[in-house]
Structures are given as C-alpha cells and as structure tokens.
Design a protein around this nucleic acid. Sequence first.
DNA 1: ATGTCC
Length: 483
Amino acid sequence: MVTIHDLTPVSEFEWEIPADARKGMRVGVRLFATRRLLEAVLKDNAVQQAVNAASLPGLAGPVVVMPDMHQGYGFPIGGVAATALPDGVISPGGIGYDINCGVRLMASAVPLEAAQPYLERLVTALDQHCPSGVGTAGSLRLSDADLEKVCRLGAGWAQQRGWATEMDLRRCEDGGCLPEADPASVSPRARERGRTQLGTLGAGNHFIEVGVVEDVYDLEAAQAMGLEPGCLTLMIHCGSRGFGHQICTDAVQSLQGAVRRYGISIPDRELVCAPLDSPEGRAYLGAMRSAANYAFANRQILAHQARLAFEAALAGVVRNFHLHLVYDITHNIAKLETHTLNGRAQRVCVHRKGATRAFGPGSPDLPPEYAHTGQPVLVPGSMGTGSWVLAGTAESMERSYASSCHGAGRVFSRSQAKREIRGEALLRALEKQGIQVRAGSMGGLAEEAPQAYKDVDEVVRTVCGAGITRKVARLRPVAVVKG
DNA sequence: ATGTCC
C-alpha cells in the first residue's frame, strides 16, 4: 500500500516516487497534485496502479499521473506512460475501455441573454437530435463497407457525407483520423455492435452541455478560439460506444496469451500487454485506431446533429446561431509521437488514459490558427460545476509527455454515488441553479453527481500551477443532456 | 465506459 510517506514533494503541485521505491519498478512516478487532492486519491488504488504501471517493459521515462487521477482497470485514469522500441509494449489497460473517449467544444456568437427565453426549447431539440442512453442505436445502419470506411477515415467519413467542413477536420486532434487503422483486426462481434451506434452519445459521464463563456484569462488565445465572453458554447463528451468497448474486451482477452508467449512479467493481470512490434501488439494497435476513428466520426456526427438542433430551436428568433468548432481532443488513446527524453529525440508510444494531449506553441501538429496559443485542452467539470479551456505549454513537452488533465476525476465510485445520492434531488438542485437538464435515468444522474467528483477548479489550479497548461477561459453550464 | 453476465 502506498502512503503519503512514499511520496517526495517536488513543489506545491508535484510529487515523485523514485524508481527504487518498490520492487519491480523500472522507472519512477511523477504525480501532479496538491496535498489535498493526493490525500483524497490515496484512499483508492490509483497511486498503487501508477507504481504497477512503472514496471511495464520498455518505458522511456517516468509514469506521469494527473491531479484528476482515480482508480481504473489496471492502470490509473489520469495516467500517462511512454514506451519505446525495441522492448516497449502496448497495454489496453493504459488506454481504457472507451477508446478515444474525448471532448469537442463548439462556440457561437449568441449572447446568453438573447437565447435565454429559448433555452428549454434548445435543450429539448438537442435531446431529440442526439440519441443517448446505454445500448441506444442511432439512425444509421452501417454496411460492412461503410464501417470499414469509418475505421479508416474517422471524421473524414462524416465529411464525405456532408456532415463536416474542412475547418471541422482541421480543428480535430490528428485531423480527426489516426493513420494505419486496421479494420481487419476488429472482431465480428465489435463490428456488429458498432453498426448501429454511430451518431449516439451513450451514457455514464457522457453528455452534451450548453455553456456560456464566463471568465477569460487569456484574451488573445480566447479570440483565436472564437470564445466570446457571455456567448453560448456547446461541449460534447463521448467516445467509441460499444464498438471500442468490445475491441478493448477482445484485446484484454487475447493479450493474456501474448503475456505468456513473450514471458512478460506484470504485477497485475489487468496490465496485460504485448510488444509494440509483435503480431498481437500490431493487431491491437490496428483495432484500437479503428475505434479511435469511429469515435472521431461519432463526435463529428453528433456535432452536425447539434447544429441542426440549434437551427431548429433558434432560427428566426436569434441571429448568428452557427456553432464553429474550437477543437476536438481525445483523452483515452495510445499514439506514436516524438519526444525529447534525456536530451535525445525518441519515437515513443504515449498511452494517455484520462489525460489530454497538450502540445505547446509552435508544434507542427497544430492548425495554423493555434500555432501561437498552443493546443486547446478541454476540461469538462462535474455536472453543473463549470468547464475549462486551457492551452498546452512548452513545459508540458518537457514534464508530462505533452499531456495535461482531462476532467474533475471521481472521488467515489458509481455504486457509492448511487447509494448516497438521489437523482431526483440532484435534478431539482441543478434546476434551482438555472441549469436545464434532460436525463435518461435518475440512477444515471446520481452516479454523476458533483459530490462524487473532485473540485475541477483545484485540478486546473494544479496543472496550471505546475505549468503543464495555462488557463484560457472558464465556461458556466446552462443546460445539459445526459443518457 | 459497457447490449453493467453469453
């Protein structure tokens, strides 16, 4: 068991566990957290899981953990690990079940005051245009050929259908498409689940939130992103639905064999993995990229549906209701990137699980309009508490494999939240705050209660205090759609 | 997160 005494403070916002702290560790662990956040997470298994992850073969540097960390499958949510050839592995636990779960932020020039009388109509329209809930099918029924195209093209598939602009794609991480997806490595069962779910939101912590730009901390960056104080925004949080879930399930099963065949020693069977250049590792990478592209297409289609909902609710009564894409990020993914480690540029496989890429200014992977601001980093808070727009920094390139936090992060489990919180009472409390809510189930709402999450403002204070991102703007929620 | 157990 890891206690606060195993952690060496580096600053108010950063801690270290040295590589020789525990048997089996190959690298150290670097944690970004305040003492208060750390004490909360030491009650669950997240830090121990980071220590376990530090024993994976072929790590190129320390395992990094973000302040919104909490316990996940094998590997902590909020964790970042970089592995390198020749010994490096890929581990599905380091990515998560919801492959390319991510966040898309859109913004408008509609002042809240102008839209206020139509908010109820707007949230109803969003609820009708964006199907949500566990197991929910959308209106699309993909043929085998179309599903393969979605796997290969990502958001580009939506563009072919007329549901995305060139600017939409440019403002997605990786242009909304990871190269070298291999749909042939996707099981028939995953394909069957994926066929009907494109263009759906899902459940759990997935949501669509209408917000208003409340506070601006970096005027130049906010202007570059088209974030106008007092105007409406729309945030979509969702992933690859049953398709990605099945791909992860299949990989966790099949990589158990790889661990045996390659004689890999792991401290927790949930850390199953395979060498990056093995047939098993390559097959998972190809399937994972297929799920990632499915999720990019999913968020793009939901964005198109949200634009139709804005039109349905606001056309004729509010001017300039167009929603432009600010950015689309993924926070559950592994990607091949070049990072400078120990003074030398290295090609590494960066696993980010509940962590957001945060490229600094001047990165060649950013669209030109963000060359000076750095990558937009989108941080949804817990329901009703506000969300943040941050930007990547040069510091993140050096300290965290160009990564930052992804949200508030749980402090207690879904089951505990369900036991302790009444969905109906929460709904009334949110409405009292002036937040319109459309929720598929009261139990599901209770699971996502703000009391079950850490304080997103403290999480953001930590990553900005540590210098791995900087504040751009804070968004206040005015309406939310949940599965 | 998830057709929350094929």
